[in-house]
Simulated assay, not measured.
Amino acid sequence: MEKEKFRIEIIDFLPHYKQFEVGKYADGTPACLGDVVHMNGREGNWFVAYRYGKVMLKQVGFMAMIGSLKIDNGDFSDVEKTNIIGAGMDYLIIGYTNEKLYQELKNKGVI
């Protein structure tokens, strides 16, 4: 049986911004899905996103994403949180309906 996928666009997620903590920044503040961060040595703004069971960083409009064990384990000490609230026509969350996050999103009315 094939797994069923689900997707949520950045713009559709905005009303739920700051509701899904995925780790901590170096200063101890919560890192959340949808946060916009800067990375040392990389240009542009990156979204804290979710792809098939892993937390990653993604730029709007680009296929490439950056993932690491540190980020996936909630350690965001290598990125700098911005005060930007971003939006764009791109997916922030892509996963399967049998993943834990799907149920959390459903319980909070995101899907």
Results as ranks from 00 to 15, higher is better:
residue 91 Y to G: 05
residue 24 K to T: 13
residue 75 D to V: 14
residue 33 L to Y: 05
residue 89 M to T: 09
residue 33 L to I: 09
residue 30 P to K: 11
residue 40 N to T: 10
residue 41 G to S: 08
residue 30 P to S: 15
residue 97 T to G: 01
residue 95 G to T: 06
residue 37 V to G: 06
residue 86 G to Y: 12
residue 75 D to E: 14
residue 58 K to I: 09
residue 99 E to H: 04
residue 51 R to A: 00
residue 8 I to E: 03
residue 34 G to M: 06
residue 98 N to R: 01
residue 25 Y to D: 05
residue 109 G to Y: 04
residue 35 D to F: 07
residue 94 I to V: 15
residue 35 D to W: 03
residue 22 V to M: 03
residue 71 I to Q: 07
residue 45 N to Q: 02
residue 60 V to Y: 10
residue 20 F to C: 02
residue 78 D to Y: 08
residue 84 I to M: 11
residue 63 M to L: 13
residue 91 Y to W: 08
residue 32 C to H: 15
residue 87 A to K: 13
residue 91 Y to C: 04
residue 68 S to G: 12
residue 108 K to F: 01
residue 77 S to N: 12
residue 84 I to V: 15
residue 56 M to T: 13
residue 61 G to T: 02
residue 12 D to T: 00
residue 38 H to S: 12
residue 70 K to D: 10
residue 53 G to I: 03
residue 37 V to E: 09
residue 24 K to L: 15
residue 72 D to E: 06
residue 50 Y to F: 15
residue 104 E to A: 09
residue 23 G to Y: 06
residue 11 I to H: 15
residue 63 M to C: 12
residue 82 T to I: 10
residue 83 N to C: 08
residue 73 N to V: 00
residue 90 D to P: 02
residue 21 E to A: 01
residue 95 G to K: 04
residue 54 K to Q: 10
residue 68 S to V: 11
residue 36 V to W: 15
residue 96 Y to W: 14
residue 82 T to Y: 10
residue 15 P to L: 02
residue 108 K to Q: 10
residue 85 I to E: 06
residue 88 G to Q: 14
residue 1 M to G: 06
residue 88 G to E: 14
residue 65 M to L: 10
residue 75 D to K: 13
residue 80 E to N: 00
residue 84 I to K: 11
residue 72 D to P: 03
residue 90 D to F: 02
residue 87 A to D: 04
residue 84 I to F: 13
residue 59 Q to P: 05
residue 15 P to V: 00
residue 50 Y to K: 13
residue 76 F to Y: 12
residue 108 K to W: 03
residue 63 M to R: 15
residue 21 E to N: 03
residue 64 A to G: 07
residue 78 D to C: 11
residue 16 H to V: 07
residue 40 N to C: 00
residue 33 L to V: 03
